[in-house]
């Protein structure tokens, strides 16, 4: 009787099973639903309906813009934080980093709810009444608040890895602080920026919990669309999901997310 042969490759089986059942099959199902009608016949009706409807396209553009603003604001806030923390000689800087990351340990819905109540409280103050209906502002604020740690962490770890001697060399060669920053720190932290951007940009296009709770459900992002269509019309819902997938693919490709080397350096969490 032959013993079945086990090798190190056997270890891959669970992952392969996982990938097939939870990644590949669902994708195919979405593809199938997107191009069928309610009688399960092949149809391009959803495709045409989606691209001939200006409101759907506007919603996609809006989601992109909201995600973009969120990402830029996150980057603007996170970069100095990461830079200062990475370069300072403070002994307990770990604590400060922890404080930035700490909110991630608290339930997300709870935090958004708390933020909502905070805004309610603030909009009761004189001069701030407009805050109650500043739905876009509140949505972006909530997203920035939620995704900031995802920007800080990769930036911090990337900057931590920059060899100190590079700064010294730069100074030796006559560069001032600004030149060093622009020509040493920024180029070397690009992998961190990229992975931070990916981690903030993509979820903020679909995180409709924030837009519903802070934007009073008057801000509609593409994730909400998908959710609502899946309540009644799976085929259209799948089409929207597919379009989103393509948008995400393009933006990942543009930001160089598929380059393996940068990913290795940038992947931190």
């Amino acid at each position: 009787m032959k013993m079945p042969r086990f090798s190190r490759k056997t270890l891959c089986i669970p992952y392969a099973v996982f990938l097939v059942f939870f990644v590949i099959v669902p994708m195919l199902v979405i593809l199938f639903y997107a191009f069928t009608d309610k009688n399960m016949h092949i149809s391009f009706q959803n495709f045409i309906r989606f691209f001939s409807d200006p409101t759907k396209l506007s919603t996609i553009v809006y989601s992109l813009v909201i995600a973009l603003i969120t990402t830029v604001v996150c980057l603007v806030i996170a970069y100095p934080v990461a830079y200062i923390l990475a370069r300072s000689k403070m002994k307990k800087k770990f604590v400060i980093l922890m404080l930035f990351v700490l909110p991630m340990w608290i339930n997300f819905v709870l935090r958004v709810n708390a933020l909502r109540e905070l805004f309610n409280l603030l909009s009761g103050l004189e001069g701030l009444e407009g805050l109650g209906s500043a739905n876009y502002f509140k949505t972006v604020f909530g997203m920035v608040y939620d995704f900031l740690p995802f920007m800080i962490l990769p930036l911090y770890t990337t900057m931590l890895k920059i060899d100190k001697s590079l700064y010294e060399a730069s100074a030796d060669l006559g560069a001032n602080a600004f030149t060093t920053f622009m020509r040493v720190t920024v180029p070397l932290s690009i992998p961190g920026i990229m992975s931070g951007v990916t981690m903030v940009f993509l979820p903020s296009m679909t995180n409709y919990v924030v837009s519903d709770m802070l934007g009073n459900a008057k801000v509609t992002i593409i994730g909400k669309f998908i959710y609502e269509y899946f309540g009644t019309d799976w085929h259209m819902g799948s089409m929207v999901a597919l379009v989103l997938l393509i948008v995400v693919f393009i933006s990942t490709w543009l930001s160089g997310g598929f380059k393996s080397e940068e990913n290795v350096r940038g992947t931190t969490i």
Partner: peptide, 19 residues
């Protein structure tokens, strides 16, 4: 079924962002 499609499209137009 037909009314359902009409109403859903209406709702998505209402909820959607207009530029």
């Amino acid at each position: 079924a037909d009314a359902s499609v009409r109403i859903n499209e209406l709702w998505s137009r209402v909820k959607a962002e207009t530029l």
